[in-house]
């Protein structure tokens, strides 16, 4: 599972049956390169914490653009959260209020 921020939604009428009209969100995973002890991740955290790459996930929870979410990847997660027929392995499984980094090797922020 990983933390990511929703950067947009994606739509298209031509889709597999397994998509079943479900909401697709584009997310950018968090990177910890800039994190120090005490760094707090939330919906309004610094863009610098986000990785450059993005990925797409099915979103059964209706997360808004800008929100921090928990992304689960794998068929077990998909079976439980959406259903065994869904054509994805990545889905939003929680909308995160806040995550705090407490002990990195880099120590506290200056």
């Amino acid at each position: 599972m990983k933390l990511a921020r929703v950067v947009g939604t994606v739509w298209g009428a031509n889709q597999s049956d397994g998509m079943n009209g479900r909401r697709v969100v584009e997310v950018r995973p968090l990177g910890l390169a800039m994190a120090r002890d005490g760094t707090r991740f939330s919906a309004d955290c610094d863009d610098g914490h986000l990785r450059q790459s993005s990925m797409l996930a099915l979103d059964p929870l209706g997360a808004d653009v800008g929100q921090l979410v928990l992304i689960g990847v794998g068929s077990r997660v998909r079976d439980l959260v959406i259903g065994p027929e869904a054509t994805t392995k990545a889905c939003v499984i929680a909308i995160v209020d806040e995550a705090v980094v407490e002990a990195t090797a880099r120590g506290t922020a200056p």
């Binding site: 950067v7 947009g8 939604t9 994606v10 739509w11 298209g12 009428a13 031509n14 889709q15 597999s16 397994g18 998509m19 697709v24 584009e26 993005s54 653009v65 054509t87 994805t88």
Partner: peptide
């Protein structure tokens, strides 16, 4: 790997 949707639009900046 399979194409599962053709994207018509996206709100991503």
């Amino acid at each position: 790997a399979a194409v599962v949707q053709v994207i018509d639009g996206s709100s991503t900046p």
